[in-house]
């Protein structure tokens, strides 16, 4: 537990020193989401129908961008190797890094998303559902994405490869997350979608850290 907190505090302190990194991801998210209407036209009904999908796709891409850096710096300067041989369990370190990644990208992204929803003309209750779905769903992106980031560590062409590996795994998050908003738009209770999203979060909580630890051990072998 102390290992977890130490690493978490370290990650956040590093991020505070390089505010630009986290901010860029957030700006990227807003820019991508704002470009969609320019491509498909300003028809309000159409925009309302695709708002959730656009917000979620933009969130996936933003997460993907930031994931590439999750382990890279620590891998390059040898810190990761030290973490591997340190007495605290590797799972605690990995979970702390995943947690920090979510706090720095997923959480701000979810908080900004209702603004995007406003641009797309979503009603108030759908905005709430969008916020909740992103709050429940973005941790999955960090959890499964960490496994992908660990697998592609030090591999040539890592960025595009990371997308190929993790984007198909994000399909359930996209379906349940965007589906919750769409359901509330057409007057269906989104609770079922959100609980399924929560269930997938639970599965990722088991699979993600295990796969990340195993992949880190492979990468540093």
């Amino acid at each position: 537990m102390t290992g977890f907190l130490t690493v978490l505090r370290r990650e956040l302190r590093i991020a505070l020193r390089r505010k630009g990194d986290a901010l860029n991801v957030l700006v990227f998210f807003v820019v991508v989401a704002s470009l969609f209407p320019l491509g498909v036209g300003p028809e309000p009904n159409q925009l309302r129908a695709m708002a959730a999908g656009v917000a979620w796709i933009a969130a996936l891409l933003a997460a993907l961008l930031s994931l590439a850096r999750l382990f890279a710096a620590d891998y390059a300067d040898g810190t990761l190797e030290q973490m591997l041989v340190a007495p605290q369990p590797l799972a605690a370190v990995v979970l702390a890094k995943i947690c920090a990644h979510w706090l720095l990208t997923g959480l701000p992204l979810a908080l900004v998303a209702p603004l995007i929803g406003l641009q797309y003309g979503l009603p108030a209750d759908a905005l709430c559902v969008l916020l909740v779905s992103l709050l429940v769903g973005t941790p999955v992106l960090s959890l499964l994405g960490a496994a992908g980031a660990a697998l592609t560590l030090g591999v040539r062409g890592g960025g595009a490869l990371l997308g190929l590996l993790v984007l198909p795994l994000f399909v359930p998050v996209l379906v349940f997350g965007a589906g919750a908003v769409t359901a509330s738009l057409i007057g269906i209770n989104p609770a079922a979608h959100l609980s399924l999203l929560g269930a997938f979060l639970a599965v990722s909580l088991l699979v993600g850290p295990w796969a990340s630890c195993a992949a880190l051990r492979v990468a540093l072998d």
Partner: peptide, 19 residues
């Protein structure tokens, strides 16, 4: 590792798309 994560996900993906 990737194949194992994938094989856990395939039924979930199928179910989610059906949903």
């Amino acid at each position: 590792i990737l194949a194992l994560v994938g094989v856990v996900n395939v039924p979930i993906i199928y179910f989610s798309v059906q949903w």
